[in-house]
C-alpha cells in the first residue's frame, strides 16, 4: 500500500518534471515554426513515447531509492568499518572504470571523435585505424573516471578541500590545451560531460555521502559531494594528455 502511494506521488512528480519539455516543443512547433509534422514523425508515436518517458522516470526514481541508494550507502559504511583503504580504493577505481567503459554515450562520442581526428590528419583515414583509436579513447576515458573516483575517495578520507583540487585541475586543463593538438580539444572537453551516466551518478553520490557520514569528523555536505566533479574534470586531462602523447 505504501509502495502504491509513493509510486503515485512519484508519477505526479514525473509528470510535473516532463511538462516543461512538452510545453517548449509544443510552443515552438505550433507558434514559431507553424509547419505540419513531416511524415517521418508520427503523432501517435510521440504521445506513446511521452507516456513511456513518464512511466520510465517514475520507475527509475523508485528503483533508485529502493536499490541504488541503499546499496551505495551500505557499501560505504561497510568499507568505513572494515577500515581497509586498499580495497576501498580498488572498489572506487573499479566502479568508475566499469560504469564508464560500457556507457553508450561514450561509445557514440568515441566513434565520432575518431572521425574528427582522422579528418584532421592526426591518424590514418581507414576504418581499422579509426576503430582502434575509438577503442583506446574509451579505455583512456574509463581509466580517467576510475582514477577520478579513486582520487575523490582519497580526498574524502583525508578531508582535503575540494575547490583547490578542482581549480588545480582546471589549471592543468588550460596548460594542456595550449600544447595539445587542436582537433582533440573539443573532444576532450566534451568527454568530461558524457562520462557520468544515469546509473553511475546515484551510486557514486551515495558512496561519497555514505563515506562522509560514516567517517568521524567528516561533514556529508562538505566532504560527501564532489566525486562527480572529479569525474568530469579528470577525463579532460587524460584525453588531452592522450592527444599529446598517444597519437
Amino acid at each position: 500500500m505504501d509502495f502504491a502511494f509513493s509510486l503515485i506521488r512519484q508519477m505526479r512528480d514525473s509528470l510535473r518534471d516532463l511538462a516543461p519539455v512538452v510545453l517548449v516543443i509544443g510552443f515552438f512547433q505550433l507558434v514559431v515554426v507553424q509547419q505540419p509534422l513531416p511524415p517521418s514523425v508520427d503523432l501517435l508515436d510521440l504521445i506513446t513515447g511521452l507516456i513511456f518517458v513518464v512511466i520510465g522516470l517514475t520507475l527509475f526514481i523508485q528503483g533508485l531509492q529502493l536499490g541504488l541508494f541503499p546499496v551505495g550507502e551500505g557499501l560505504a559504511e561497510a568499507f568505513a568499518r572494515k577500515g581497509s583503504v586498499f580495497w576501498l580504493l580498488l572498489f572506487s577505481f573499479a566502479l568508475g572504470f566499469g560504469s564508464t567503459v560500457a556507457e553508450p554515450a561514450l561509445i557514440a562520442v568515441a566513434a565520432k571523435a575518431s572521425e574528427v581526428v582522422a579528418e584532421g590528419g592526426l591518424i590514418a583515414n581507414t576504418p581499422e585505424v579509426q576503430d582502434a583509436f575509438a577503442f583506446k579513447l574509451r579505455m583512456v576515458v574509463a581509466a580517467s573516471v576510475g582514477t577520478a573516483v579513486m582520487l575523490g575517495v582519497i580526498r574524502i578520507l583525508k578531508g582535503w578541500p575540494l575547490h583547490f583540487m578542482i581549480i588545480g585541475g582546471y589549471v592543468i586543463v588550460l596548460l594542456l590545451t595550449l600544447v595539445a593538438p587542436s582537433e582533440i580539444v573539443g573532444i576532450a572537453y566534451d568527454s568530461g560531460g558524457v562520462t557520468t551516466s544515469t546509473i553511475t551518478v546515484p551510486l557514486v553520490t551515495a558512496l561519497g555521502v555514505g563515506l562522509a557520514t560514516a567517517i568521524k569528523g567528516r561533514n556529508p555536505m562538505l566532504d560527501g559531494f564532489g566525486l562527480i566533479a572529479f569525474a568530469s574534470v579528470m577525463p579532460i586531462i587524460f584525453v588531452l594528455a592522450y592527444g599529446l602523447l598517444g597519437i
Binding site: F52, V53, I55, G56, L57, T58, L59, F60, I61, Q62, G63, L64, Q65, L66, G67, L68, P70, V71, T198, I199
Partner: peptide, 11 residues
Amino acid sequence: GFVLVLIGLSF
C-alpha cells in the same frame, strides 16, 4: 530496486 531501475531506464 535494481529491476525497477532497469525497466524504468529502458522505458
